[in-house]
Amino acid sequence: MSVARFWRETLRRYNLGASKCPECQTVFFPPRSVCPQCTVHRKSMTKMEPCQLSGKGEIFSYTTVYEAADGFEMQVPYVLALVKMAEGPVLTGQVVDVDPKEVHEGMPVKATFRKLREDGDSGVIHYGYKFAIVRSPTASK
């Protein structure tokens, strides 16, 4: 992916930037400029509101990857999941720091900021969201 193309997607990759239809309240990720459910009345045109996903969600479906894509060789085996976000959209992302055997559908996760890939030793480093298992916030003692 080109440096320019990735840079244009910074808002959604870094900050989970989404958009919301003011008519039917549906949240879209990636953000849309028109609501496909309200196009008949063209009510949503120019009215879509930018918003940010909370990062909270749960695992809807997942798979364990053993044959890595370029740049992910050191992370094999890793879990790739479809995550249903609290606001509605379903996102695809890696689930980090977990034994694939522990992952299950319905597991609560939250977005975490990670390195996505590096363009070799001298190229740009791409960052964005992945997902981490939600642990209870209180210390055990």
């Binding site: 992370q75 720091d97 990670r114 390195k115 996505l116 480093i125 960052y127 992945k130």
Partner: peptide, 13 residues
């Protein structure tokens, strides 16, 4: 750190 963690991701979190 995990292979996908560095000073930028740690600082951000």
């Amino acid at each position: 750190p995990s292979p996908d963690e560095d000073t930028i991701t740690i600082s951000t979190e």
